[in-house]
Design a protein around this nucleic acid. Structure first.
Length: 110
DNA sequence: GAGGTGACGACCC
DNA sequence: TGGGTCGCCACCT
């Protein structure tokens, strides 16, 4: 059996993010039981590009709703993907992020 | 095998 | 209030 690491759990959570919603690295990390492992969540996203199926990493942004990882997607891809889902991006940041915020700690009712 | 790095976040001063 | 540092754990060299 493949041993599921923190890394793998991140992918699992991200795949459950519903359309039109977004969450933060820290929220996922906290859901997984390691709030301080937010760095790992972001790093996991780095590997998401080679995963099948491609996980909606664009729905994962930092605590401020800032598109910190847009450079890893491509300058425009991340923002356009989010806008296509109804998000309003302003200055590389999700406007009213808290309204679109999807908290795995609540939605997945750990 | 060991050390450095990294899409962040929280704490400390 | 703002800047600096630590922590976390998997991946790369």
């Amino acid at each position: 059996m493949d041993k599921y690491t923190f890394f793998d759990n991140v992918f699992d959570v991200v795949r459950q993010i519903p359309f039109g919603k977004a969450t933060s690295y820290g929220a996922i990390a906290k859901y997984l039981g390691s709030a301080k492992s937010s760095r790992m969540v972001g790093y996991a996203m780095n590997a998401s590009h080679q995963l099948i199926p491609p996980i909606p990493a664009h729905r994962v942004v930092n605590r401020n709703g800032l598109l910190t990882g847009k450079h890893h997607f491509g300058e425009n891809s991340m923002q356009e993907l989010l806008e296509a889902e109804g998000f309003v991006i302003e200055n590389n940041q999700i406007k009213d992020f808290d309204k679109h915020f999807w908290d795995p700690n609540v939605e997945l009712a750990l």
